[in-house]
């Protein structure tokens, strides 16, 4: 025994190779496993501390408007609504754009960058399954970032009132548009960001591309709305991704946009924004799947 302890290369009990006797769960499970793994990756879980900082940090920033509103509600004696539910999105839209610009290249670009794609594509899932997992993960991540503060705000506001039950009863109607609007916003941001980010394995270019898209087209839409007239003015608001989503969210809440909004200048009916949002999502999905079906690995 003593001799064994002194030997420089201690031996380990070799149990031999054991074949896998259990289940093989196949394609659907593999797709789900990749979704969960990628969703963790959205928030930097299982990755370096640095990758947690940005995504978690931005998720916290998205909570700030809700926190301020609730803070005021806790101090002020009267019911003071600073942020109407239909306006929450417009407070956090830039946070969402930043979040996607940081996270989308991580979600979709890292496997191209590290050349891990051949390992995925030679396993139990197909290329479309892979894209679906990644898309689902980012959409779920954005949904949490944009939806959670609104739900917290709704519940927090109820707690801050004297009569929680009647407040919830009066405002329960806000919940479907909160969830529906957040879902639309999440799917839109996820598909568009992933489509842009998947075009290059280089993280910096992908981040810049996503950010540039949201900023440039939003500004462009705004300029066109404010410098043109008639039909051109009406429809040029649809160039701006943020306005398309803003219009959709207001329509879902059945609310009027604020008077200083570009949405007011253009006289489009609310439903048109939702249709435009679907059109954007559809086009982005087409490009995204095409990209991965054609990608040589």
């Amino acid at each position: 025994m003593a001799e064994q302890a002194n030997s420089p290369t201690g031996s380990i009990y070799d149990l031999g190779y054991r074949p896998h006797e259990g289940e093989r769960l196949g394609r659907a499970y593999a797709t789900f496993a990749l979704f969960v793994y990628s969703l963790r990756g959205v928030f930097g879980l299982g990755r370096s501390a640095l990758s947690k900082v940005f995504s978690m940090g931005l998720a916290v920033v998205a909570l700030v408007p809700a926190a301020i509103q609730l803070g005021i509600a806790a101090i002020a004696p009267l019911e003071l609504e600073i942020i109407p539910p239909e306006e929450y999105f417009s407070f956090v839209q830039i946070v969402l754009a930043l979040f996607c610009a940081v996270v989308a290249p991580e979600i979709i670009g890292r496997d191209q960058r590290n050349r891990t794609l051949p390992l995925y594509f030679s396993r139990a899932l197909s290329r479309p399954d892979y894209v679906t997992s990644k898309l689902g993960a980012l959409a779920a991540g954005v949904f949490i970032v944009v939806g959670l503060p609104q739900v917290i705000l709704l519940l927090g506001s109820a707690v801050a009132t004297d009569d929680v039950v009647s407040y919830l009863g009066d405002n329960a109607g806000d919940l479907p548009p909160i969830l529906g609007g957040s879902l639309l916003v999440a799917v839109f941001f996820a598909t568009v960001s992933l489509t842009i980010a998947s075009q290059t394995p280089r993280r910096a270019f992908a981040t810049g591309g996503v950010l540039a898209y949201f900023v440039i087209f939003t500004i462009l839409g705004s300029i066109l709305v404010n410098t043109t007239s008639g039909t051109v003015q009406d429809y040029s608001v649809l160039i701006s991704p943020i306005d398309v989503l803003d219009g959709s969210v207001h329509w879902l809440f059945g609310a009027q946009p604020p008077s200083d909004s570009d949405l007011v200048h253009s006289g489009l009916a609310g439903g048109v924004y939702v249709l435009a949002a679907f059109a954007y999502i559809g086009a982005a999905l087409g490009l995204l799947f095409r990209r991965f079906m054609r990608l040589t690995v």
Binding site: H20, A33, Y120
Partner: peptide
Amino acid sequence: PEHDCLPPDVTATDFVAHMAQISGIPR
């Protein structure tokens, strides 16, 4: 594969277990 294919910021344990799941092996 012939080429490098490992993400540098993940541990071998996490990576290999993940790859097993993508092949359909329960967690």
